[in-house]
Simulated scan of single mutants.
Amino acid sequence: MKIDPPAPSAPPLHRTPATGPAPSPAAAEAVERPKEAASASAHVHSLPTAVGRSDFDAARVAAIREDIRAGRYEIRPERIADGLLASVRDLLDPKGGA
């Protein structure tokens, strides 16, 4: 078995600070996007509590977690497939699901 000698490592990149023209409006907009995204994210996370309902059931999660630990949790692929197909049918229904 022949082993080739190691390849030489690439020289490090040296970047010089940009001294060109001012950033374009698109670049300035890109800097602002993270702030907008954070604001939108905070808004989305506040929605379930704003309407007074939450889709998260902590007791159900705890029960499932315990069933998994005890080896009692049963995965039923046909039930998962049926649910996925029903969801796709609802999305593709031209009548709007009603």
Rank of each mutant, 00 (worst) to 15 (best):
M1F: 11
M1N: 09
K2D: 07
D4S: 11
P6A: 03
A7T: 10
A7F: 02
A7H: 02
P8E: 08
P8N: 03
P8T: 00
A10Q: 12
P11C: 02
P12E: 00
P12W: 00
P12A: 07
P12I: 03
L13D: 10
H14K: 14
H14Q: 12
H14W: 12
R15C: 07
T16M: 12
P17I: 00
P17R: 08
P17L: 05
P17H: 03
A18G: 09
T19C: 10
G20T: 05
P21F: 12
P21E: 13
A22Y: 02
P23N: 01
S24W: 05
S24P: 00
S24Y: 05
P25M: 13
A27W: 08
A27T: 06
A28V: 05
E29A: 06
A30S: 15
E32V: 03
R33W: 08
R33S: 08
P34Q: 04
K35C: 01
K35H: 04
K35E: 11
A37H: 10
A38W: 06
A38Y: 07
A38P: 00
S39F: 07
S39T: 15
S39R: 14
S39K: 13
S39W: 13
A40L: 13
A40C: 09
S41F: 12
S41P: 00
S41H: 15
H45P: 00
S46I: 00
L47N: 10
P48L: 03
P48F: 02
T49A: 14
V51P: 03
R53V: 02
R53A: 15
S54N: 15
S54E: 08
D55P: 04
F56Y: 15
D57L: 08
D57C: 09
A59C: 08
R60V: 05
R60G: 06
A62V: 02
A62C: 09
A63M: 06
A63P: 03
A63S: 14
E66N: 08
D67Q: 15
D67S: 12
R69G: 09
G71M: 01
G71V: 01
G71N: 05
G71T: 01
R72Q: 10
E74W: 10
I75E: 11
P77I: 03
P77N: 04
E78K: 10
R79I: 13
R79D: 11
I80P: 02
I80T: 11
D82M: 01
L84G: 03
L84A: 07
L84H: 06
L85Q: 08
A86S: 14
A86W: 07
S87C: 13
V88Q: 09
R89N: 05
R89P: 00
D90T: 06
D90H: 12
D93S: 09
D93P: 03
D93F: 05
K95E: 15
G96C: 07
G97M: 11
G97R: 15
G97L: 05
A98D: 09
